[in-house]
Simulated assay, not measured.
Amino acid sequence: MGDFNLNVEIQWDELEFNLALFCETAGRVFPLKSIYLFGSRNFETGSVRSDIDLFFEAGEIIKPSKVREFIDEHCKALDIFLLDRGEARSVINESFIRGDDNGEVLRQCGAMKLWSSGRGLVQDNSIPWKLRYASHVDFTKTVLPNAHMRMSIDDLRTKLLSDGLPHDPVIGETEIEVAETLVKLAERITKFQRADFSNNGNARESFAVNPANEYDVQDLFWIASKPWVQAIAREEVAIVFDGQQKRSDFSIGGSRFIVEMKFAKNSSDKRSIVKTLEGLSKFYSENANVTFLLFIIYARRAADIDSVQWEGRFSRSANSPKVLVKVITLND
């Protein structure tokens, strides 16, 4: 056997990142209020192998995918968190931290302001405007603790109100928690049996026991949800795009949170719904006001829908709007 040289030298460069130029560029590209530096680079405890952690305090809704593209164009060492309404969430790995407001998050992380929309770059000689990073490192992105700093019920309701989510009653502290609550409700309304109703009325022979189409399940959902959650609206205009009006089945918060319901009786309905899911997701993505889209699909067994595959294929959490798909199989 030949000799092996185990002392392999890795060739790499130490690159310089102009943080000031990056902040000014980001301020022109995105609707930002402020940019902050936090983490080891802020406290000057990081090495050239440390990533560069930034908060983008948003002035409007920003799509994480656009920020990821921006990172790819400028510096692979960057890890950017979008900060809005007391939540900072990584555009890379979705880790987050929450507080009563943006100021609480910034204090918790010891963040340093770099730039603001009103004044531009902060004039402070202590800011490390020139950062160096290693060219060969596959940077491990910062993972925040996915922690929710405790707030009072009044503060929580104020935050939910600003987020356009139900606040009286509170049915979830985030969009995904609200969606999960509504999914549970959507599942329960299909569990009625004839024995649950009196002989004296007509309910035993009605759609409450045997819904036949999407309008029946929508009516059931409306009857069950509206007296409880006043924030839910039905068939309001969600967006107008290219002259077309789109009325959502249900909506919350001025159409920021959309609920669409479909009903699959057979394989023909199944094929049609696939096209609808793809089309509606694209349609709603054209409007930055829509931040969450919940698809609930009621399916007869004859439709032969693989719920795990559909929910995995059509749900998404990385881009805006976030999409959650839930398939509810009906007992025939």
Rank of each mutant, 00 (worst) to 15 (best):
I189C: 08
A111H: 10
A186F: 05
D306V: 05
A26Q: 13
K275M: 08
S281A: 14
C75L: 01
D242L: 14
A302P: 05
E60L: 08
F250L: 10
I127C: 08
H136S: 14
F96N: 04
G201H: 05
S206P: 03
G103N: 15
V178M: 03
T329E: 14
M149V: 15
L294H: 02
I239G: 02
R107N: 14
R188N: 15
G39F: 10
L131H: 06
F283L: 15
R301I: 07
S65F: 03
D138Y: 07
R194I: 07
F263I: 03
N331K: 09
E214A: 12
H74L: 05
I92F: 09
I171L: 00
K184T: 06
E44A: 07
I189T: 04
Q11M: 04
R41L: 07
D249L: 08
L330N: 03
D332T: 13
P166M: 02
S307T: 14
I35T: 05
W228A: 00
I127S: 09
S206Y: 05
D79Y: 00
F4C: 06
I328M: 02
S126E: 11
I80V: 14
D101K: 14
R89V: 06
L185Q: 13
L114H: 11
V240W: 03
S162I: 08
L160V: 00
C23K: 12
K226P: 01
K66M: 08
D154K: 08
V274P: 00
F17W: 03
R313D: 08
V137T: 13
V137P: 01
S251R: 03
E94K: 15
I252M: 09
G243Q: 09
G27W: 05
A77Y: 03
H148L: 02
R271S: 01
L106G: 07
W12N: 12
I252K: 07
A208W: 14
F139W: 05
R98I: 01
N42G: 06
I305D: 03
I52P: 01
R85K: 15
L277W: 12
Q245M: 13
T142W: 06
S34I: 01
Q309H: 14
E180H: 09
I10P: 09
S90N: 11
G103K: 13
I171S: 00
L32Q: 04
L185P: 09
A302I: 07
E175D: 14
F314S: 04
L182Y: 02
E60S: 11
E260N: 08
E60C: 01
E57L: 05
G39V: 08
D101Q: 10
W310A: 04
G312H: 10
S152E: 07
G39N: 11
G279L: 02
K275N: 10
M1I: 01
L324N: 01
K141Q: 03
I97E: 04
R247F: 11
G172L: 11
L293T: 06
L185D: 05
